[in-house]
């Protein structure tokens, strides 16, 4: 069985007190509890403070380009669906630069687990508005305030019939760990948006700000009721729901591809003698 020490990685280049630390520690605990070993999964990430995540851990890693973690993760999962593939990104990375990929990853229902460190700001580039920044907030680059409406990733994902839609909070580790484990167990595409206070550039959405507003979805809440999930996902402001907002049983994309039914693509041997048949078709 793996232990926490097996996951020791580099020293994080995050600001002291950043919400990312809690997410990292929680993730390590979750994989240990799931009995996953470092070589059994791959973290694909983009660029941003959040996206440095896999370097502070021990696991297979593809730290790619800003906004492009999902297509890399998709290709990886299609080539080896026995590998657990986790995409770790930020709100700018995933909802801004990579927005189109998110729509289509959800549509495909590729079996990738997406964890978004949502600090409602561009951290690494030092404090510009992100798609989840609240309307009206002022930054160096938006001195008149943000005019665009805040993106609600939960509502968006539910509208697209995403197979697993959840929200966690970096300040609520025990709850977040449960979400991470459930997301990992889901067959299809899972989105976990994690509220992550940025202690340096976001002076509004602080630990305290979130603590005053978040609440756990009540035990009777039925995440399979899409209309109710949609309604509940609209909640933001005074009350912000945490938990699994929505889930369904759509089969994962890779499960529908007959040629990899028996074994992952990466284990298929190449037999050059079969090529003669393709050549014959040109006569």
């Amino acid at each position: 069985m793996p232990a926490l020490e097996d996951y020791k990685g580099g020293i994080p280049a995050w600001c002291p007190g950043c919400g990312n630390f809690n997410i990292l520690n929680t993730f390590k605990e979750a994989v240990v509890e799931l009995g996953m070993e470092p070589h059994q999964f791959t973290v694909v990430s983009g660029i941003g403070q959040a996206a440095k995540f896999p370097h502070y851990l021990k696991c297979n890693t593809f730290n790619g380009l800003h906004g492009r973690s999902l297509p890399v993760a998709t290709g990886l999962k299609l080539a080896n669906h026995e590998m657990t593939v986790v995409a770790v990104t930020g709100d700018g990375d995933c909802y801004g630069e990579g927005g189109n990929h998110l729509l289509h990853a959800i549509r495909r229902n590729i079996g990738v687990k997406l964890f978004v460190h949502d600090n409602q700001i561009y951290g690494l580039t030092k404090g510009q508005a992100s798609p989840t920044s609240m309307e009206g907030i002022k930054t160096k680059n938006q001195p008149l305030g943000v005019f665009s409406e805040q993106l609600n990733p939960m509502t968006l994902a539910i509208a697209l019939d995403c197979s697993f839609v959840a929200r966690g909070f970096a300040g609520d580790a025990a709850h977040l760990k449960g979400l991470m484990k459930e997301a990992m167990k889901q067959e299809g595409f899972s989105l976990v948006d994690i509220l992550q206070p940025c202690v340096t550039f976001n002076k509004i959405n602080t630990f305290e700000w979130y603590r005053q507003r978040v609440y756990h979805l009540e035990p009777e809440y039925n995440p399979e009721d899409r209309v109710e999930a949609f309604r509940r996902s609209l909640e933001w402001g005074d009350r912000i729901p945490l938990g699994v907002l929505f889930r369904n049983n759509r089969p994962a994309y890779e499960k529908r591809i007959s040629i990899i039914e028996d074994s992952p693509l990466v284990r298929h041997a190449f037999d050059i003698s079969k090529v003669e048949a393709a050549l014959k078709e040109f006569y």
Partner: peptide, 26 residues
Amino acid sequence: AYGIIVEQAEDEIAAINMALGASFAG
């Protein structure tokens, strides 16, 4: 017939990144 996955990507950015993901996987 030849066990190849052909994926129509959402755009060319995704197309090359998917190919890289698959290549990384082996």
